[in-house]
Design a protein around this nucleic acid. Structure first.
Lengths: 292, 292
DNA sequence: TTTGACATATAAATTATTTTTATTATAACA
DNA sequence: TGTTATAATAAAAATAATTTATATGTCAAA
């Protein structure tokens, strides 16, 4: 069976018009008809119910089933190509979200340098979500990721590195600044300054506000720790982060005394289907050793 | 790209002789040569280093990388076919790890037979971990799974069936055989015989050894309850399982008196996104009724 | 060092598969 | 009822995969 037929099929379930799909792939319209026929013969099932008219085209249950697998197959194929490209250039691509990078990379870099491996790595700094996507697409060989709940994806391998608590950061001038520790619900009427989308702290924050029936007032989101800390120190709002972030003199870090607080979990993550060659394995072992 | 080429390639990495692979697929030897050439061109990388002689054939790093994905692709393709067949023939695929099967399947089978539904099910016997993966990948419609902690996964629906304790199994000749109950830490110097990877008891065992600061000596892992019980009865080592396993005359089951002992939880599990058609729903209701 | 056995590669021919061109069929709708 | 947009079909053409026949490379025994 040809992957091209699957690509036609996937596109057909999206565009829903044979001739438009043909255009998309720069082939003639009957090509799509024949491709679908081949698939239906191979699967021995009707995949699509055709309406000859500018109207709907219905994907059957069997079609939906095939669709899921077709997408997975195409993805595998593309990831394989990408991985092989990485192998050829003898590099290992590592995703390191900024907060985690701050905490772990200095030590990692030092160890890698000692082994003369530092120039075999390429690092990518995005939020955890984007990093995970990049890993799944094969763009990255490896990632250090933050998560709250243990990660739940059959395709990825996860090694837990560390679990650390979240804290609330407030200005020294803030009315809570003198408490040793607080409850999350004490923050009911605060203004918050948080990270942008795709950072793990947000998911944890969302869980806590939901649990406490709060509708938090988020006045700003930024990607820059410095920027956020600056605003907090000026008492513009309060922050909610793990202990990896460094904070200035006039900011206070408050413990949260709630039970069952979510933890910030750092994970070493890679695709189960990823093949590490000797050099990559060496780098992986080195990193593993550096952070444990 | 053709999946046939991938099949040739996978076989070639196993059999390692072009002409033998050709024989296997009932094609001529150059077919294999050309298939490999096509793949190498597509991936733009050498996949296999040939030795023209009856000797070794080396899979390159790129080849190994492709191999992993190739196997996944072929598997997806086969699962897709299987799923569609199931849809067409009105079958429901059920995952039943062996230990759970022993306990629940006789009753389930009896009820299903009464309703004339027994030939609408196909069962799969793997460890809990593999079963869960298979469920998530859509290979299974439904599973009865063991877990320690209640399962928490956004994508799956869980109905708890039962919670039962774990026990220690020892030979009658064993020095602990006369105790009514023991503490887990009493097992500090024992040799253990356990199940292989992917069974729930192992996770529970790991937690307990960690909690008690133990470094257990696991002398054997097996998938066969009979085999394990045989060894225990010969006083080769001790076992740690739930009460679903049956045990011979000369083996003794010991209670564990520790606080907060993990429990073996049996769950009925399916994907939230799964669509059960009428017949499948009937089977599900029947199973639910049988085990509660 | 030669020769035979085994294994893979290559060239050309053959066969199979996919795509195109040209045309027909079908439904909706103006 | 004719027009338009769309899919299906048939036959031819193009492309791709496989085979047959043969060449080439490598090892090991003579």
């Amino acid at each position: 069976m040809n992957t091209r037929d699957l690509e036609y099929f996937i596109s057909l379930t999206e565009i829903k018009i044979f001739s438009k799909v043909a255009e998309e792939f720069n082939v003639s319209q009957p090509t799509i008809t024949f491709a679908l026929k081949r698939l239906e013969k191979e699967m021995d099932a009707k995949l699509i119910i055709r309406h000859r008219t500018h109207g709907e085209l219905i994907v059957t249950d069997s079609g939906k089933q095939l669709l899921k697998h077709a997408k997975a197959i195409i993805r595998h194929f593309e990831v394989a190509k990408q991985n092989i490209d990485n192998l050829k250039s003898n590099k290992i691509s590592i995703g390191l979200p900024p907060i985690i990078e701050t905490r772990y990379f200095p030590k990692i870099a030092q160890h890698l340098k000692e082994e003369n491996l530092l120039n075999n790595i390429i690092t990518f700094e995005y939020g955890s979500e984007t990093t995970l996507d990049a890993l799944k697409s094969g763009e990255l060989d490896l990632a250090l990721l933050g998560s709250i709940n243990p990660m739940e994806d059959a395709r990825i391998e996860t090694e837990e590195i560390d679990q650390i608590p979240f804290y609330v950061y407030v200005s020294k001038k803030h009315h809570l600044a003198n408490q040793k520790s607080i409850k999350f619900s004490d923050l009911k009427h605060e203004d918050f300054i948080l990270f942008k989308q795709g950072f793990v702290q947000n998911e944890s924050f969302r869980q806590l506000t939901k649990k406490n029936g709060m509708h938090p007032n988020i006045i700003l989101r930024s990607n820059e720790t410095n920027n956020i800390m600056n605003l907090i120190s000026n008492n513009v709002g309060v922050g909610f982060f793990n202990s990896f972030v460094s904070y200035p003199e006039n900011v206070v870090r408050l413990k949260l005394e709630d039970d069952n607080m979510p933890k910030f979990v750092t994970n070493l993550v890679y695709l189960k289907s990823h093949y590490f060659n000797d050099l990559q394995q060496k780098v992986l072992d080195n990193i593993r050793h550096s952070i444990k």
